[in-house]
């Protein structure tokens, strides 16, 4: 459990971090909370020559709630979970991060780190997809935004360029008539998701579902939107029958992974179960 030798940098500005990334190229890894990277290094599954610690960059640690909820890429889970304004503006985000890992993980782990690492069983990517979050990344050419839908390319791979840093993530406020929920079966050892489903619904003035986004994590190589389920629930009155019909379509068109904790077959079945639970909870919340 001893990593290979590496150089360590702790820049205090994003620009400095970006230039370190440029300088060291593929030898460098960004270090956030370190809960994914450091264990992999200790097991020598990865041996980066350079670590650039981004947790000393105060500009990317803020959490603010205005027209939307903006969370710095370096903000910890704890900073988000314990923020009352976040909880009232976007409860699902606070709920999701409040149950990640354990206290130690939440005190160190960062929002940007989770999204950039794109672990197939991480919780946050599902919530980011369901809420239609926008990720702001800064590289040598300046800042750009990435829609959550474009972010997760494949297992452990995102749309980020090698020398970009997530500076902030923007989530919508959930106003009246909107609801969102994240429901998860935990892998008992790691507490990652065996299956996690995030659902967002917006009701129209007629009380029917006007808009829905559903995303699954844990079951396959990457967090995945459930288009068929979204289409099936949209326009319905969101009652049990509608939820059941929409749930039937969940997880039909996606790739699965199996391991000693849950087979592909079981994950496929659980996607439906947790989609149903997340949708029901989101709709109930939307109705107030």
């Amino acid at each position: 459990m001893i990593p290979g030798e590496f150089q360590y940098f702790a820049p205090t500005t994003v620009d400095e971090a970006v230039s370190l990334l440029q300088q060291h190229g593929e030898d460098a890894k960004l270090l956030g909370g370190g809960h994914s990277l450091l264990p992999a290094m200790k097991l020598r599954l990865t041996t980066p020559a350079v670590l650039i610690d981004v947790t000393k960059i105060s500009d990317i640690k803020g959490v603010s709630v205005n027209g939307s909820v903006t969370v710095g890429g370096g903000a910890t889970y704890h900073a988000v979970a314990s923020n009352d304004a976040v909880r009232s503006a976007c409860g699902v985000l606070a709920d999701c991060v409040a149950q990640i890992g354990d206290t130690q993980v939440r005190n160190r782990g960062t929002i940007g780190g989770s999204l950039a690492h794109a672990d197939p069983a991480a919780d946050l990517p599902a919530v980011a997809l369901a809420l239609g979050a926008t990720i702001t990344a800064q590289g040598p050419g300046g800042a750009r935004t990435i829609n959550a839908d474009d972010m997760f390319v494949e297992m452990l791979t995102t749309a980020l360029e090698p020398n970009e840093i997530i500076t902030s993530v923007s989530f919508p406020r959930l106003g009246a008539g909107a609801g969102a929920a994240y429901e998860k079966m935990r892998q008992p050892a790691s507490r990652y998701a065996i299956v996690g489903v995030a659902a967002y619904v917006k009701l129209g003035s007629d009380g029917n579902v006007a808009e829905a986004r559903v995303a699954v994590t844990g079951a396959g190589p990457k967090a995945t939107r459930q288009d068929a389920t979204e289409a099936a629930i949209t326009g319905t009155n969101g009652d049990d029958a509608a939820i059941a019909a929409a749930t039937d379509k969940a997880g039909e068109d996606m790739d699965y992974l199996g391991d000693i904790h849950a087979s592909e077959e079981y994950r496929r079945a659980m996607v439906k179960v947790y989609t149903k639970r997340a949708l029901a909870k989101a709709i109930a919340q939307a109705r107030g």
Partner: peptide
């Protein structure tokens, strides 16, 4: 040993 780390060998915590 597939359950070779504490990420795969499920020692329960108090909440479990």
């Amino acid at each position: 040993l597939v359950s070779g780390t504490l990420m795969d060998y499920a020692v329960p915590n108090a909440a479990m």
